[in-house]
Amino acid sequence: MAVSISRDLTVRLGEDVNTVKLTDRQQELRAAIQRGEPKCLGVSQLMLGLMVMSYSIPLHFTEFTEVITLGVPWWSGLMFLTAGVVAIVLDKNCTMKFLQLCLMVTVVSVVLSVVAVIIYSVDMQKHPEVPCDKTGEGSCSDEHYVTKLSRGLKSSLLFFTLAQTVISSILSFLLFRQRRTFGQYASLTPDGPSTPTALIPPDFN
């Protein structure tokens, strides 16, 4: 804070250097975040979460495997939705604390996406499609169609989860880079008036 005292003992407070620097850095942070397009990536995460949850509904009418027993599409889909909403809000609320929150949620989304990919892959290997053994009427067995539908849905869920892993990884990298660039200014807080003010000494006469 710049302090100047004139000859008539009037004390003038100038602009706080830290306040100006903080304001400039916040504007730069907002511009940098918006250049990273977190809103677009957040919308993509949101749509993937909805697709994962909607595609998992028919699985409840097929064979119950580890994917359904562990509820993989539901907790992974909800995590995708949460990460997408947080990324969309970050586009409007560009603060360092919210950036760190978004980074944490996105990293958790990446980890859960990898776990879900592993479960889908193992489940599809353990439960392959039943070959078509034609019955006397010349059509395949019901078990063939059930396993074929189940495998097709799991393949779609696996593809969506892989896409989510890539999107979350990209967003995590962008957020981590911004946090490292602007993290040193997170502790700066305005501790004085940002506009010059004048203090008139009391008149003791």
Rank of each mutant, 00 (worst) to 15 (best):
A2T: 13
A2Q: 14
V3T: 07
D8E: 13
L13A: 06
L13R: 08
E15H: 10
E15R: 15
E15Q: 14
E15T: 06
N18W: 01
T19R: 12
T19Q: 10
L22E: 11
D24Y: 08
E28D: 14
E28R: 11
L29T: 07
K39H: 09
C40V: 14
G42S: 09
S44R: 10
Q45V: 00
L46D: 07
L48V: 12
G49W: 08
M51I: 00
V52I: 13
I57D: 09
P58M: 03
L59N: 12
L59W: 10
H60V: 00
F61Y: 12
T62D: 07
F64N: 09
G71D: 09
W74E: 12
W75Y: 15
S76H: 12
V85K: 06
L90V: 03
K92M: 10
T95H: 02
T95A: 09
K97E: 15
F98A: 08
L101A: 04
V108H: 09
S109F: 02
S109I: 03
S113P: 03
I119A: 04
S121Q: 13
V122Y: 15
K126L: 15
P128M: 08
E129F: 00
P131V: 05
G136R: 01
C140V: 02
H144G: 02
T147C: 07
T147Y: 11
K148Q: 13
L149Y: 01
L153N: 05
S155H: 00
L158A: 01
L162I: 05
Q164M: 09
V166L: 07
I167H: 02
S168Y: 00
S169D: 02
S169T: 08
S172N: 07
R179L: 06
R180L: 03
F182Y: 15
S194T: 02
L199S: 04
N205A: 11
